[in-house]
Design a protein around this nucleic acid. Structure first.
Length: 493
RNA sequence: GGCAUCGUGGCCGAGUGGCUAGGCACAGCUCUGCAAAAGCUUGUACAGCGGUUCGAAUCCGCUCGAUGCCUCCA
């Protein structure tokens, strides 16, 4: 009996704009595809939020017992710099600017991507395919779409015929657009466009002689269009129809719309049952984006080397901050918000340590079973992590009350509480305990214990000058002493 | 210009017809040698204007404001 059999998970499907009960195609198994990064520069924090949201979703699905195949690609080719004829691959451009090989760019930023996500404690996906590793698959899909009449070749490039497609299918159903509106709202036409219609998009693009990233194809040397890789890789690893497709809100149109069109044209069916879109992270009220320069790199947060924040923050605090907002809401990052989250995060972590050493009693004042159910309800309601965290703090309150001797808990309930709170905090939310009192070295803890002892001696001798000196200087070093009923503990900040 | 989304107490952020989310900050109290930590208590917020309703932050309309997409973007 798996947990998912007793939990009713609902998620917001951006295809239908409704919250729906999640039912996988194959009982007990979930296929999930998430659009990964284009590796032409360092991942910024906004990227991380999206990947973190889907990491949380991946974790929860696994937690409730699903076998999940989670595919997240690496885009290492194929993004046109602009829509004009001189369209250039983003990675190739970067390579030229930096005078290095394209694959060197890809390598460098892929490593950065992995390092960063690891700091944020993201689980690796089941499969992480690359676009350049699936050129053949992409070419096959283009052939198929051509055969079915939804694409045309011109001058060594192949374009998807959106108008033709729209005659039998519904282009724009994901983003709520109508082709007629799009046509009438087209802004100035790019001069001499070889496309039949501005809404058409490239499946294959002819490579100019100076273009370095190129592959042979039935239409000559070139490179694949922007949207094709995801169709190729999702189909290959998850099948023509799979459960969940995720990505950032900004990919909804045109990227995901085009994916649907490609898949429907090629396979004759809608590829995805549940589309999920994670919302943007803003910085100073503006979208964080590489292209505008309004961005913050994870390393700048960890090191404190930036003009926005007053101090460095550890990755887990940033993760906690993001988990305090619903994945589908816009979240605005600020120094104050991060400081507030940091406090809350350490409060939560401290109470987990407290819980371990909690004394038990004959009865429980805390209804752990009801609490647990509330936690699941929160997650089952479209992965509502803010509500889950509110429940966690409810438990924190009880843990502290029990510690103070104002409430009691039985052995059994304590064990159950430990099991579930740890599961939610670490397995589902993916937080890490950086609270120092738990994982610092034995030597340091020995030294601090000694100082606590000396301070207590001074205090009992009413030598407050000495005792305060120990306390204040430790505090200045980032070691905070906490006097409690059962003696003094400490934590690192 | 077109299409969307959103506007919640000092800050962040849930909630979508009646029943107090939560975190941080602030104040008072308990504890303490004094603090810190911890606990308790208090805050009656929902952009504005109308409408629907016995009842709206929650539904409808308008106004104002913000953001996103429409072009590579998580």
């Amino acid at each position: 009996m798996q947990l998912y059999q007793e939990q009713t998970l609902k998620l917001y499907n951006t295809l239908t704009n409704k919250k729906e009960v999640f039912k996988p195609i194959n009982e007990g198994h979930v296929g999930m595809y998430v659009c990964g990064p284009t590796v032409y520069s360092n991942v910024h924090l906004g990227n991380c939020r999206t990947f973190m949201s889907f990491d949380m979703i991946f974790r929860y699905l696994k937690h409730v017992g699903y076998k999940v195949r989670f595919v997240r690609n690496i885009t290492d080719a194929g993004h046109l710099e602009n829509d004009a004829d001189e369209g250039e691959d983003k990675i190739a451009k970067k390579a030229r600017l930096e005078q290095i090989e394209p694959m060197e760019v890809v390598q460098r930023y892929t490593v950065d991507f992995h390092n960063t996500l690891q700091k944020f404690n993201l689980l690796p996906p089941s499969i992480e395919p690359t676009a350049t590793g699936h050129i053949i698959e992409q070419i096959e899909i283009i052939k198929d779409i051509l055969e079915k009449g939804y694409a045309y070749e011109i001058n060594g490039s192949v374009y998807f015929d959106v108008v033709k497609f729209n005659e039998t299918n519904e282009y724009g159903k994901l983003s709520g657009r109508k082709l007629e509106d799009m046509i009438s709202n087209t802004r100035e036409l790019t001069a001499q466009d070889e496309k039949r219609n501005p809404q058409d998009f490239a499946l294959w693009k002819k490579a100019e002689p100076q273009h370095i990233m190129r592959w042979p194809s039935p239409w000559g040397d070139g490179f694949p269009g922007w949207h094709l890789e995801c169709t190729a890789m999702s189909t290959k690893y998850l099948g023509e129809k799979f459960d969940i497709h995720g990505g950032g809100m900004d990919l909804k149109f045109p990227h995901h719309e085009c994916e649907i069109a490609q898949a429907e044209a090629s396979n004759g069916q809608s590829p995805v049952n549940y589309w999920m879109h994670a919302n943007m992270l803003t910085l100073n009220g503006k979208k964080m984006a590489k292209s505008t320069g309004n961005n913050l790199l994870p390393n700048e947060i960890f090191s404190g080397e930036n003009d926005i924040l007053s101090k460095p923050f550890v990755a887990s605090v940033v993760r906690f901050f993001m988990m305090q907002a619903h994945y589908a809401s816009i979240l605005d990052l600020s120094n104050d918000a991060l400081l507030a989250s940091e406090k809350g995060y350490y409060k939560l972590m401290d109470s987990l340590s407290t819980l371990e050493n909690l004394e038990t009693g004959p009865t429980s004042d805390f209804d752990v079973e009801t609490w647990k159910n509330k936690c699941y309800s929160a997650m089952n309601d479209d992965f509502n992590t803010p509500i889950l965290i509110a429940q966690l703090f409810d438990a924190v309150k009880h843990i502290n009350l029990i510690k103070e001797g104002k409430e009691t808990i039985t052995d059994g309930d304590k064990a159950k509480l430990e099991e579930y709170i740890n599961a939610f905090v670490f397995d589902v939310l993916g937080l890490e305990n950086t609270s120092a009192s738990d994982n610092n070295s034995d030597k340091l803890s020995g030294v601090v214990e000694l100082l606590i002892e000396l301070r207590n001696e001074a205090r009992s001798n009413k030598d407050f000058a000495t005792s305060d000196k120990i306390r204040d200087q430790l505090d200045a070093m980032g070691i905070q002493l906490k006097d409690g009923k059962e003696g003094t503990t400490y934590s690192l900040s």
